[in-house]
Design a protein around this nucleic acid. Structure first.
Lengths: 246, 246
DNA sequence: ACAAAAAAGTGTAAGTATTACACAAATTAT
DNA sequence: ATAATTTGTGTAATACTTACACTTTTTTGT
């Protein structure tokens, strides 16, 4: 076992986003402070999956390690999106109490590198370890620890920007999806409504969205055709930019 | 004078880009190591404008302060674009020699927050202070100190991405510019050639590119009409996205 | 004064993409 | 069988993109 020394001024926070065919969700971790030798709950709130980095790991590895430690999830496509270093980002009284009681001594200000990851939030098995991690609707993710409200906001702003300009949404859909699911996703992220016929016309130009010979099963209405995203076709045919709806 | 304590594991590096109607340029700072008590030049190379941050300044302020200290330039529109934390980013022998001789003790690995700024590289007055700062063509900016080759590469990749998707190039042009200058800029950054008539058709849709009642003077050919960018019109009329050439 | 050089400025036709709009078809549950 | 639900489809008007070449305006050199 190698010795791992914390860098006490640098952390990584991960905004793990999921879509459940209705809304965007984010994985948050319970932060309940119980004073030692008592059972008194001093406060209880939620944080992003985040932790300090070690001296012998790079940023991407730190992000992957932190997510694995807190949720059990591995091999997520984590992408760095922004770094946060406001002087007061740890200065809320609860944050101070928490840091005083967690056993390590941190510098007054910690710069955090923000990462995000996208995945379908259904069928994702979060492994509980000590501190509970769970999905929460993004719209309810307010009053988070530290500056994590702001970090989530920036992540979603980043995501929305990318959505307008390239087809990144497929990671948020199941492997086999219907065009209605895809449309709902775009509408949820971009906050717009699209006409069904025009949306489909647009999608039919994306030849990396390939129709399967399968239909939905177990739905109480006409079953929809299933599609999948072909990274292969995508890499080969996509243009420098992505024209989406204006 | 307030006491300023360095955070020895976090720095900011700024990629200050300029365009001179021909090519992209970047401001680099001379790093010549002369051993104390001798005049022997151990090595001499170039770095981005960068330095460690202080404990009592946030990231944006650090970036502005560093640029001012090294170049005299103030009020640049500095934007954060990516952070770098590879374990070996300071491990080149020259980097080690430099750090050993600069008087401070730094941690083995320093995470740096990358910022960029765009400006016309003509008429920019770089104030020399001790270490020389100057413009260099981006294409020649190879073999830089630390991992700065990579930082510059990432900055330009980021810039190119944004250029395809929104009209950010105006900061790289003089306040009054011709359509040919604008076209050259787009061609330089995007690495494409555009048809003059089609380019102008496209620009005429951007009603925030406003024609002036002035023409170029002092050129040895038919003088071109001058245009300027109106942030006012831009903020009011621009759509969520920017259709540029596919 | 004139010619040469240099870059500015301009139009059209064919093809492609976008928009707005409404109803029939397939399936399950009762 | 019927109701409920969601899928799936076409057209016409407008706007945008593409490919393509010559004339105009100005300065410089003779």
């Amino acid at each position: 076992m190698t010795v791992r020394k914390l860098m006490q001024s640098i952390s990584v926070d991960c905004v793990i986003l999921g879509f459940d065919s209705e809304q965007l969700n984010v994985i948050l971790v319970d932060r309940t402070l119980i004073l030692p030798n008592t059972t008194e709950v001093v406060f209880s709130d939620l944080t992003l999956t985040g932790y300090h980095i070690y001296e012998n790991e790079d940023l991407d590895s730190a992000a992957a390690r932190i997510v694995k430690d807190l949720t059990g999830l591995e091999n997520l496509p984590l992408k760095q999106f922004y770094s946060f270093g406001a002087l007061d980002r740890l200065h809320h009284p609860n944050d101070q109490l928490w840091l005083e009681n967690c056993g390590d001594v941190f510098s007054d200000r910690v710069v955090t590198i923000g990462y995000y990851s996208l995945l379908p939030s259904t069928n994702v098995n979060i492994i509980q370890k000590g501190r509970n991690a769970a999905w929460y609707p993004v719209t309810n993710a307010k009053g988070l620890a530290y500056d994590h409200d702001f970090v989530v906001e920036k992540a979603i702003e980043h995501l929305r920007y990318k959505f307008w300009h390239e087809p990144i949404g497929f990671e948020l859909l199941p492997v086999k999806f219907t065009l209605s699911q895809m449309q709902k996703l775009y509408e949820a992220i971009l906050g717009t409504q699209f006409d069904k016929r025009n949306f489909r016309k647009k999608v039919s130009q994306m030849n990396y969205v390939v129709p399967l010979k399968e239909k939905q099963i177990g739905v109480a209405h006409k079953p929809a055709q299933l599609f999948m995203f072909s990274r292969d076709v995508y890499d080969k045919t996509r243009k420098e930019r992505f024209d989406f709806f204006v």
